[in-house]
Design a protein around this nucleic acid. Structure first.
Lengths: 205, 205
DNA sequence: GTCTATACTCGGATAGAC
DNA sequence: GTCTATCCGAGTATAGAC
């Protein structure tokens, strides 16, 4: 998620200031993930991005606007990731398994900070933040992509199965984070993958 | 969790100030749950408890000390809940199913604020708070109680199955919270219960 | 033990020079 | 567009009267 994709120029970020804006968003993205949104201050971001504090009120009027920028950034990254899977594998099953494999790729980060989408959504929901729906849309995007793959494979109720896959993945992630346990993450996700394969093979339902 | 049990007097809370202390802890417990720990201020708690701000530095030296009190309170509530299940049902299977049924009893709260233990652990882990292990112990307590029931039923690997049950429950809870979806919670938990029963009946593994 | 007033710090936001 | 200085409010914590 934090890995920047090459061309991330959103419509309003053209012009000369784009590099600076991008540096700010990338730093905020990382810090929001590591510490949470509320716990991250402008000073933290300014230090990390190497941009003086006052400057980025030029790019973002408020902290919420910055959060919006970060969510958009994450959405673009996620879209790029899914597009890349679509391009790399022509088989929906391979695509899906590649995603499930890749979800726990950044193992250390996930054990330390949890799932970037799950933890952000949880924080914004709890505080009733107006942008919670934008964060929720990230979860929906990945769930719907999974459902699309399942539909291509001719599964009965693709959306329902996609929900179940997401539920189990989030459960594994949350507990691996809470317990700080690497084994729980890798073994838990492996169990999810085995379960998905057994469903796809019709050995389970 | 927030439902107080009758006798919750911890060792150091005897004496005349106990009611006030308890009022503070109960209010903090609720607000930490609804808004999260960091997002809750002393003023919020003071208002909710009907105790003036300055007063409760008499009971708790710092905000962290108050958090510790809240975690202890939750642990006592959880212990009382589990003891009550042990007393009410003499059959471990009934006990377990009663717990799984009861977990989504406060449906509205869970959809709005998530799981009290899961969301607190996630927040404290992310911020690297020193009390994160105390919060984690709550999750362990419930997991181990589940494992005990499974062991009494003669399950092969009770701890592993208990982990899996907790994983799925937390996944359902997190997503129902993130999506703000009541149906996801009730249907998801019903699915977990059906799955557990099929495992206990030896129809699945 | 209870409560008021306040000190101190930090974070979000603004003004305005360059 | 870039950056410094600063205001303001909020939040934790303390001092001290009662």
């Amino acid at each position: 998620m934090t890995e920047a994709i090459a061309n991330n120029t959103s419509a309003d970020a053209v012009g000369r200031g784009a590099e600076n804006r991008e540096r700010i968003v990338a730093a905020a993205d990382r810090l929001f993930y590591e510490r949470g949104f509320q716990a991250t201050s402008f000073s933290d971001i300014a230090d990390a991005a190497g941009v003086p504090k006052g400057n980025f009120y030029y790019y973002f009027k408020t902290k919420d606007a910055l959060l919006e920028g970060v969510i958009d950034w994450r959405r673009n990254c996620l879209k790029a990731l899914l597009d890349n899977l679509n391009r790399t594998y022509d088989n929906p099953r391979e695509r899906l398994m590649a995603l499930l494999q890749g979800l726990c790729a950044g193992e250390d980060d996930i054990v330390r900070y949890g799932c970037p989408m799950g933890t952000l959504s949880a924080e914004l929901c709890k505080s009733g933040h107006p942008l919670r729906e934008r964060a929720q849309a990230l979860l929906e995007m990945i769930r719907d992509w999974i459902a699309t793959q399942l539909q291509l494979m001719g599964q009965d109720d693709p959306l329902e199965l996609a929900r179940e896959i997401q539920t189990r993945s989030q459960g594994v992630t949350l507990l691996a984070h809470a317990y700080g346990d690497h084994g729980m993450l890798s073994e838990g996700m492996a169990r999810v993958r085995r379960w998905v394969e057994s469903v796809l093979d019709g050995r389970s339902h």
